[in-house]
Amino acid sequence: MSEEIKYAIVDTVEPTNAKFSDDPMFRKERKLTRAEKRAIDAKGRLSSPWASGIAILLALIWTIPTFGLFLTSFRPEPDIRKTGWWTWFTNPNVTLNNYEETLFGSSTGLSTFFLNSFVVTIPSVIIPITLALLAAYAFAWIEFPGRNILFVAVFALQVVPIQVTLVPLLTQYVNWGLAGSFWTVWLSHSIFALPLAIFLLHNFMKEIPASLIEAARVDGAGHVKIFFRVLLPLLMPAIASFGIFQFLWVWNDLLVALTFAGGNKNVAPLTVRVAELSGTLGAKWHLLSAGAFISIIVPLIVFLSLQRFFVRGLLAGSVKG
């Protein structure tokens, strides 16, 4: 790759990021001055302490349900049965038995399903993103007959609710003898993710200046080289956003997993098992509370550590459209 392209890349990093600089959440350098100005403004505003107070209060109310169950998952079983979690503050008993029993006990066995969730999710994120990148590249940078019609068709497929597709797909999988294996779950999740992934990544690719691609072509770079050397580095934020989205989507999904892997404890992910336990365990809250948190913990970590990308993806997906 020639020096010009490298320079051009450095140059274009700015404009691509500029997409987000309209949006204050991602304004990095300018945010400081803006925030300071606002802090000064806010001090002058009478409503500010009240607003802060109400905001915090509402945030606490929003968190109480989750916190209550979280606390419960660490309380001994007899305590949970007889008293509410708020009595914990006067009677603080803590145990890890609930987690141990939920993960390894014979009635729940969530450790198996925990692994299943990972095995289901990872390929279901990698495969659609890769395929969508290829397709989005073709739509964005290769002129071919029927390009617009095909792109609109892919866009329109976002409308199809997955319920419409489940039964015929399942019948087909059964006919192929693949039903109840990881393969069908991966394939289904990949298919359902494709329309949105292609659409979003295409929009991001279109933001990259055509001159950059042209320059690389003049230098004799083929599609593969252009894609990996020029586009991929610029697309990383978009890929990260969609990747987190898809990860949370697949990990938290119930319908697809229930339909294609529901009956098989070697494939079914946590959501399927926990939803099932919600019906069968009934009042055994020491197991249900721990089970719920085992299924929640991974997306929570992903979300909290990568919140910035997640919010960016959200805004790109629904506002920028």
Binding site: R38, A39, D41, A42, R45, S48, A51, S52, A55, I56, L58, A59, L60, W62, T63, P65, T66, G68, L69, L248, W251, N252, D253, L254, T271, V274, A275, S278, L288, S289, G291, A292, F293, S295, I296, P299, L300, V302, F303, L304, Q307
Partner: peptide, 26 residues
């Protein structure tokens, strides 16, 4: 523009990361 904006927003936003199965149990 309040003081705890970021923390408060994260707390309100948190249920989005929780599966609907988890939310239902909560």
């Amino acid at each position: 523009r309040t003081r705890f904006e970021k923390l408060a927003k994260t707390l309100i936003f948190l249920p989005m990361a929780i599966s609907m199965v988890g939310a239902s149990i909560i």
